[in-house]
Design a protein around this nucleic acid. Structure first.
Length: 255
DNA sequence: CCGTTGCAAATACGTCGCGC
DNA sequence: GCGCGACGTATTTGCAACGG
């Protein structure tokens, strides 16, 4: 018996078909040309539906009698066994394609698989599997780390809420103390603080030289970013408060 | 019983690196 | 440059399990 059509074609294709990944990329449809040349069940239809009867010859493992039919019709039709083999070959090709598709999908999903290796070749299946395993382990570690971070933050939130409640209680207690009214800061003092802060800020703002309103608008943001940083404002306010406090103390001594 | 499907072994082929 | 082995991949084929 001669080689089946599929085998002949595939052997020829093996010679022609480059197996290196780069070459395969250049001939992405070479497989279908091989598979396409196979006799499918439908293409071998002349024999389909026949071969249910017959007497077993005993020289093959099959006991269905199809091989007998094979010997009867060898010259004109494709034998049952041959059709069966070709169907299986095609099914196997389909299976391999599914596996290949799976590897390709995996490679698309895993970031470390998306670049080819240093020599420029596509990653091997074993490498894709190993890198996928590594990536899943990395994701699991990352998830664990984030959960730990989240738990720590939750604990911090609880602690801060407790502190907030304590401070609120302290403030209430101070407000309820007698003689608190005398200790209260007057609006005049508040305005003095506010005015001094604004004066200091304006000093920095007045140094900006602009030709028109458009330029002024443009430089306001940069001025804000430079001179109104929380840390800068904090230092400014602290120094002003200290200054005013010392002035008030001196005034009290004199008065 | 027969077709389908999945798996594994055997085989073939191309590519690469290495020693000569 | 050539031969050779290792490696990766594709293909074929046999076997077994399963379902209609």
């Amino acid at each position: 018996m001669s080689l089946p059509h599929g085998m002949i074609d595939s052997v020829d294709n093996m010679k022609m078909e480059p197996s290196s990944p780069t070459d395969r990329d250049r001939f992405p449809f070479s497989r279908s040309s091989s598979t396409g040349s196979l006799h499918t069940l439908s293409s071998s239809a002349p024999n389909s539906g026949e071969g249910q009867g017959g007497v077993a010859t005993g020289n093959m493992s099959s006991s269905s009698g199809h091989d007998d039919e094979d010997s009867d019709n060898k010259s004109s039709t494709i034998s049952y066994k041959e059709r069966r083999r070709e169907a299986h070959t095609q099914a196997e090709q389909k299976r391999r394609d599914a596996i290949k598709k799976g590897y390709d999908s995996l490679q698309d999903l895993v970031p470390t698989c998306q670049q080819t290796d240093s020599s420029g070749y596509k990653l091997s299946k074993a490498t894709v599997l190993q890198k996928s395993i590594d990536y899943i382990q990395f994701l699991l570690q990352q998830k664990k780390k984030q959960e730990e971070e989240r738990n720590a933050l939750r604990k911090e939130v609880v602690a801060l809420r407790i502190m907030q409640a304590n401070y609120e209680q302290i403030v209430k207690a101070h407000q309820n103390q007698p003689g608190q009214a005398e200790m209260r800061v007057s609006d005049e003092t508040k305005f003095q603080v506010f005015q001094t802060v604004m004066d200091q800020l304006f000093l920095t703002f007045s140094n900006i030289s602009v030709a028109n309103f458009a330029e002024l608008s443009a430089c306001v943001i940069s001025w804000l970013e430079e001179h109104c940083k929380p840390q800068a404002l904090h230092q400014l306010v602290v120094s002003i408060l200290q200054q005013l406090n010392s002035q008030m103390m001196q005034g009290n001594i004199r008065g």
